[in-house]
Design a protein around this nucleic acid. Structure first.
Length: 271
DNA sequence: CGCGGGCCCTGTGAGC
DNA sequence: TGCTCACAGGGCCCGC
């Protein structure tokens, strides 16, 4: 489901609701795929811990906690395609596909729900801090950004999706930022001129910030921690608009596959 | 090492 | 109306 703006929206919403709360107990569902760490380790780390904060790193939600013994620890939640992190009153029925429930000491739960089970929740190794696999798109400089793509033989679209380069960009925002930078997704990353990379750097940050302001994109059933939909899908120029007229030139938006994912662009506006 | 493709899952919606 | 099939916002793993 979620890319950087959606994960940011969820993390901020959960943070506002639960920071400072204590986790009284932890319940785990029957499936083990959604757990990145041993079930007993997740339970032992989080039971009795106080939630210090919830934030986003790349597409991952990081929950900073202070354990009963006073030691800091971190839980990570990656939402995959269909994951949700909900704060619910405990009397609200547990949704199907709930894999982890953190029972707070104030009659509320934090619930990790994921029908498709591509998401993962885990505990960060003791003594280390989660940094994510790549660079942060919102704060990377133009110089650092350009350096990422030097010598790359893959398409710029695939490179944008490579989380070990930039973390947080997914299919929607890769397509949208390439449109705003007027660059065709199939162009080889290593062949882009510095002026084009500068335009892409600017477009990417602008698109991501705008999407965060609108609470992310709600395609299908995405909702934030309050069950509220985002509105950035109304701003999409190319994503999921195959055959519809380009909002700049009127020619139909094309769809191809790159990096194994559907890729939308305007042949006329993007060079 | 870098890159592309297959695969992991369930739900939804288009098309028949 | 009801069924089947393709496809979905991600990323790991494997082989080349």
């Amino acid at each position: 489901m979620p890319e950087l703006p959606e994960v940011e929206t969820v993390a901020n919403g959960v943070h506002e609701r639960v920071h400072g709360a204590r986790i009284r107990a932890v319940s785990l569902g029957p499936h083990k795929e959604p757990l990145k760490s041993a079930p007993a380790h997740i339970e032992a780390t989080l039971t009795g811990a106080r939630i210090e904060g919830v934030r986003r790193v790349g597409k991952t939600i990081v929950m900073d906690v202070k354990q009963r013994n006073g030691k800091p620890a971190q839980a990570t939640i990656h939402l995959g395609m269909t994951g949700r992190l909900l704060v619910s009153d405990r009397n609200v029925p547990l949704p199907p596909h709930t894999h982890v429930t953190l029972h707070l000491d104030d009659k509320r739960d934090v619930r990790f729900v994921d029908p498709r089970r591509f998401g993962r929740m885990g505990i960060v190794d003791e003594g280390t801090t989660y940094e994510g696999p790549g660079k942060e798109p919102l704060t990377i400089t133009a110089d650092e950004f350009a350096a990422l793509f030097k010598g790359r033989k893959t398409s710029i679209k695939a490179a944008l999706l490579n989380q070990s380069l930039l973390h947080g960009v997914g299919n929607i925002y890769a397509d949208e930022s390439l449109f705003h930078a007027s660059i065709r997704p199939a162009r080889l990353a290593g062949t882009l001129k510095r002026s084009e990379l500068n335009a892409l750097h600017t477009a990417l940050q602008k698109v991501l910030r705008h999407a965060i302001q609108l609470g992310g994109s709600s395609v299908s059933d995405y909702v934030d921690a309050d069950g509220v939909r985002g509105f950035f899908q109304l701003e999409h120029r190319v994503y999921s608009r195959t055959g519809e007229p380009c909002k700049t030139c009127g020619k139909p938006i094309e769809k191809i596959t790159l990096g194994g994912r559907s890729t939308h662009f305007c042949k006329h506006c993007q060079k």
